[in-house]
Simulated scan of single mutants.
Amino acid sequence: MSQPTRFPWGDFPDVFIHASESLVKRHRAYASAKSGVQANKVNHTGANGYARLQRQAIFSGVASLGLNYVLVDDFIGQGGTLANLRGHILAQGGHVLGATALTGKDYSAKLAPTDLQTAALRRQHGHIEDWWRQRFGFGFNCLTASETRYLCRTSTSERIIERLEEVAG
């Protein structure tokens, strides 16, 4: 599996969500809005958190050095797709000003985890951060707030590894 590029969040602004999920899914153009431009198909629709973490979106294409970008997605769940697109652009010298999504979970609009959230994850599961970095290409400081919350709700680090291995098949 190719690894995505991610960066720490700093003071990244909250994602602007345009409409409720129920309204969007009833729209006649919803199916066509689900088509994307990423380099791999991750099948996140309806997937659980471990599947979303395991199947990372990878992006291709060229971002222009010094150009400003606003990220756009159809749905924000854990925010990993936006995090990886942001990383793809930043790695090429572009600037990401913010992000917007057609719909998503309100609690996922905040992509940047707080220092307290990251510290809590490291207290609970920090001994697997090197394993995580080798597997996914980035450390806990590059996770989204929603991904961080999801992992913190897992009782043991071994369970995180087991669940990710189950999804990997």
Rank of each mutant, 00 (worst) to 15 (best):
V72P: 06
V62S: 13
L121C: 01
K41G: 12
A91E: 05
V42C: 08
S60H: 13
G49D: 01
R133E: 12
V15A: 06
G139A: 12
R55T: 08
A91L: 05
P113Q: 01
S157W: 04
N48I: 02
A63F: 00
I58T: 06
G10D: 00
E162A: 10
S64I: 14
F140C: 03
V37F: 11
E165H: 14
V72I: 11
H18S: 10
V70R: 15
R86A: 01
Q124K: 15
Q3A: 13
A119C: 05
I161M: 09
I128M: 09
R55H: 15
G104S: 03
A31M: 12
G77E: 10
L151M: 05
V96I: 01
H18W: 12
S20G: 14
R163F: 10
A109H: 03
E166A: 15
T81N: 05
W132G: 06
D74L: 04
R52K: 11
G36I: 10
Q92H: 00
L82C: 04
T103D: 06
T100L: 12
A51E: 07
N48M: 02
Q92T: 00
T81I: 01
L102I: 13
G94R: 00
E165M: 12
W131P: 07
H95K: 15
G98N: 03
Y50E: 02
I161D: 06
L85V: 05
Q78N: 08
G126R: 09
I160F: 05
L67N: 15
Q54L: 08
L116M: 07
T81F: 02
K41I: 10
A83N: 03
G77K: 13
S2C: 12
I160T: 04
